[in-house]
Design a binder for these strands. Structure first.
Length: 280
DNA sequence: CGCCAGGCTATCC
DNA sequence: GGATAGCATGGC
């Protein structure tokens, strides 16, 4: 059995390269991953997504994972200025994912001072520590030990992830964030070693569904400066962006990040600066 | 070879 | 409070 979802014009090809998820692969006719729900192929189908295989229980998982009940054009319409409108036009069907919590922590602890292509390699290596093709649980990461995590390619981040996995296993997991405000959730995320404001915002946005979270990295510093004339340090840029884009600032961030990075926004294409980190 | 990569931490003032 | 090195690893 498979499932078809209507969610506006949707291009699943954005998922592997959108900087949110690192274990999806491009296929001839869509994207695939092996570690979620036993593995699936997702392809564009008319005005929506086709997901296969997809049992009835899988369907609710994917609806949440791809945030299929949200209309981003609708959510962003109050704040869609010229640059954001252009970014949205350049990324039809982009989704802000709601990924499993621990997996997302691993991905973005790996991401600090690292290249996108290497984050993928690390995540693929971490995946081998899990069972039955699933991403490892926190206790399985713990079992690998700091040495094992270094071998996976985490480098100096290995002790960060090791200690963070320990904290998740001890109860600082997804359910610990239930009902927390953005500010409360942010302060909880900052307790993890290897997690600063930017990484915390990525997990809050790309896993826990905090749409006001606005991760500011080097790309967003460039984008906000070029597109809006908003410069300064990350904390200041984040506050200005959250003020401008409001409760759905994170969705705006996802569009601006991807559009800017692929060079479809700025006059002097950013794609050149992205270099080959954008390929596979 | 040197430089850089979705930053964070420790250490300075 | 703010500013500044140092950091494992691999690709270019």
């Amino acid at each position: 059995m498979d499932a078809r979802y209507l969610c506006g014009r949707t291009d699943p090809l954005l998922v592997p390269e959108g900087g949110q998820a690192f274990l999806w692969k491009r296929e001839q006719n869509g994207i695939s991953c092996s570690h979620l729900r036993g593995g699936v192929l997702v392809r564009a189908c008319g005005e929506g997504l086709c997901i296969a295989p997809c049992t009835a229980e899988d369907a609710s998982f994917w609806r949440n994972y791809f945030d299929l009940d949200s209309d981003y054009a609708d959510l962003l319409s109050p704040v869609a200025d010229a640059p954001l409108t252009a970014a949205m036009a350049a990324c039809p069907g982009l989704r802000v994912l709601r990924q499993p919590f621990f997996e997302t922590i691993c991905a973005f602890i790996s991401s600090s001072h690292n290249a996108l292509s290497r984050i993928r390699t690390i995540m693929q290596n971490l995946l081998l520590l899990g069972e039955n093709g699933s991403f490892p649980l926190a206790e399985q990461i713990e079992r690998a030990g700091v040495k094992g995590l270094e071998r996976v390619g985490l480098g100096y981040r290995a002790p960060y992830l090791y200690k963070s996995a320990c904290m998740v296993r001890e109860g600082l997991n997804e359910s610990a964030f239930a009902g927390l405000s953005y500010e409360q959730a942010l302060s909880q995320m900052l307790r993890f070693p290897g997690v600063g404001e930017k990484v915390a915002d990525c997990v809050l946005l790309f896993s826990l569904g905090y749409r006001q979270a606005f991760p500011v990295d080097v790309w967003m510093l460039r984008a906000m400066e070029e597109l809006y004339g908003i410069g300064g340090k990350p904390a200041k840029v984040k506050l200005r962006a959250m003020d401008r884009f409001g409760e759905n600032a994170g969705i705006a961030q996802a569009y601006l990040f991807h559009a800017f990075r692929t060079g479809s926004l700025s006059a002097q294409s950013a794609a050149g600066r992205a270099g080959s980190t954008y390929s596979t």
